[in-house]
Structures are given as structure tokens and as C-alpha cells.
């Protein structure tokens, strides 16, 4: 099927889908994780807003950094592999 219709490369399509969704989630999830862990610690210690706020803030800072680092390294590797295959 794929041979007859040029233009749709399954491997690249799935790769873009997978990496894209992973980048999106790696921005969003640290915030949620910080919120959950902070709330859990706060309910244990009885210091309600502070640790939750702090960890959520850390999550919002860490998330984009993670996404950036991961996207750069993964895409770079991908380009290197493709140029290795072509040469």
C-alpha cells in the first residue's frame, strides 16, 4: 500500500506524532506533578498553601526546560541518523 502512494511515510509520521505528544505532555505534567506532590506534603505537614505553591512554581519552570532539552537532543539525533543513512 505504502509503495503505491508516495508522500506518506508511516515511520516519520508516527515519529512526529510520538515526539510531539511527548513534548506537549512534558510541559504540562511537571506542573501537575508539583501540584500533587506539594499538596500531599502540605496535608501531611499542615502548612497548606506554601509548599504546593513552591512546587507548582518549580514545575512550571522545569517543564519547558525539560521539553526544550529533550526536543533539541531528540531532533538532533534524528537529523544525524538521517544524514548518516543518506551518505
Amino acid at each position: 500500500m505504502a509503495k503505491k502512494k508516495p508522500g506518506v511515510d508511516m515511520k516519520n509520521a508516527v515519529w512526529v506524532l510520538a515526539v510531539g505528544s511527548q513534548i506537549g505532555l512534558s510541559i504540562a505534567l511537571p506542573v501537575v506533578l508539583g501540584l500533587a506532590v506539594g499538596y500531599w506534603i502540605d496535608t501531611r505537614l499542615g502548612s497548606l498553601p506554601w509548599i504546593t505553591l513552591l512546587l507548582t512554581l518549580i514545575g512550571t519552570i522545569v517543564g519547558p526546560i525539560l521539553a526544550y532539552r529533550w526536543a533539541i537532543s531528540t531532533v538532533k539525533r534524528r537529523f544525524e541518523e538521517q544524514s548518516n543513512k543518506e551518505s
Binding site: 505532555l25 512534558s26 505534567l29 511537571p30 522545569v62 532539552r69
Partner: peptide, 19 residues
């Protein structure tokens, strides 16, 4: 950066499962 890598492993578990 190493600590970030360590955090990202846990984020990976979450993102895999939630997606």
C-alpha cells in the same frame, strides 16, 4: 542537568500512562 534527567524519567512514566 543530571537532576533534570532524573525528573524527566518520572515525567516519562506519567506521560506514557496518561496519554
Amino acid at each position: 542537568a543530571g537532576i533534570l534527567e532524573l525528573i524527566s524519567e518520572f515525567i516519562k512514566i506519567l506521560s506514557f500512562s496518561f496519554r
